[in-house]
């Protein structure tokens, strides 16, 4: 006959469990402390590294990208910390300067491209306006993307539109662009800046309604122009992808706030 567990046994079991739990907590706390310490050390080292290589970070885009990645891995965002150590370093300022210049390029080209510009064109124009010296020239697409991302805080007015295959467009007019719109831009880019309903049907297998809706939206956003003089069907042109627009000179010259 089985003996039923007495009150004493239950209490003993409970006590044991609590002890285990305490021990567990203790270990966890230890580990956490350890990790915090390690992170702290890493952070200090990173800061040391950053200040030691301050100039390198500023001048060399590849260095800058790797440094950003290191920061990201420990959850430090040198762009968002305007105070303390990082502000002394001026990394944030560097990107703020780029961000302002992105806005200026977007504004200056707006009447030609309707507020949509390819990252390559943006980079060419920005670098040109930054002037001759080498350190002003070395701005990578990665720098531009990081800076442009920061502009999102101003609301829907600024947006980075991924186009696939490492290509991006920067949109500087309010209005959401969906996946369909990015797909249309991608198609237009490889087709001399224009597309049509039947083209999208052929390339993407889209229903007429889907294409029409997306194309109408882009016309409504001022991003696409309609051409009614093609004998076969209505064509939609994206001025920001039209080759002669990319070559246009724009009067822009940046004053350097830094360095």
């Amino acid at each position: 006959m089985r003996r039923r567990a007495g009150v004493g046994a239950i209490q003993k079991h409970k006590l044991e469990q609590e002890k285990y739990k305490d021990k567990g907590n203790e270990i966890q706390e230890n580990q956490f402390e350890q990790m915090t310490k390690q992170l702290e050390v890493f952070k200090v080292n990173l800061e040391e590294f950053a200040s030691k290589h301050k100039n390198e970070i500023r001048k060399n885009p590849e260095f800058r990208r790797q440094f950003q990645e290191m920061c990201a891995s420990i959850g430090v965002d040198p762009l968002s910390s305007g105070k303390g150590f990082w502000s002394v370093l001026g990394i944030g300022d560097f990107y703020y300067e780029i961000a302002i210049q992105i806005v200026e390029v977007c504004l200056a080209t707006n009447d030609k491209n309707g507020g949509l510009i390819g990252l390559d064109e943006l980079r060419t124009r920005l670098i040109k306006a930054r002037g001759q010296s080498k350190q002003h020239q070395e701005i990578s697409k990665d720098d531009l993307l990081r800076a442009a991302q920061k502009l999102k805080i101003f609301g829907s007015g600024f947006n980075v539109v991924p186009m696939g295959k490492g290509k991006y467009m920067v949109q500087s007019v309010p209005g959401e662009l969906s996946m369909d719109h990015s797909a249309i831009l991608q198609q237009a880019e490889k087709n001399q800046a224009f597309i049509s309903v039947s083209y999208l049907r052929r390339e993407l297998n889209w229903e007429i309604e889907r294409s029409q809706k997306a194309l109408d939206h882009m016309v409504d956003q001022g991003l696409a122009w309609i051409d009614l003089q093609n004998p076969q069907e209505r064509l939609y042109y994206i001025p920001s992808l039209f080759a002669p627009v990319l070559m246009l000179p724009v009067n822009l010259f940046f004053i350097h706030y830094l360095i």
């Binding site: 309707g114 001022g222 122009w225 309609i226 064509l235 002669p244 627009v245």
Partner: peptide, 18 residues
């Protein structure tokens, strides 16, 4: 100007701003 070789330049655009 670039617009002269841009085919839709010869179609009056429906979007007011454009």
């Amino acid at each position: 100007p670039w617009q002269y070789s841009f085919p839709p330049f010869f179609t009056l655009q429906p979007h007011p701003e454009t």
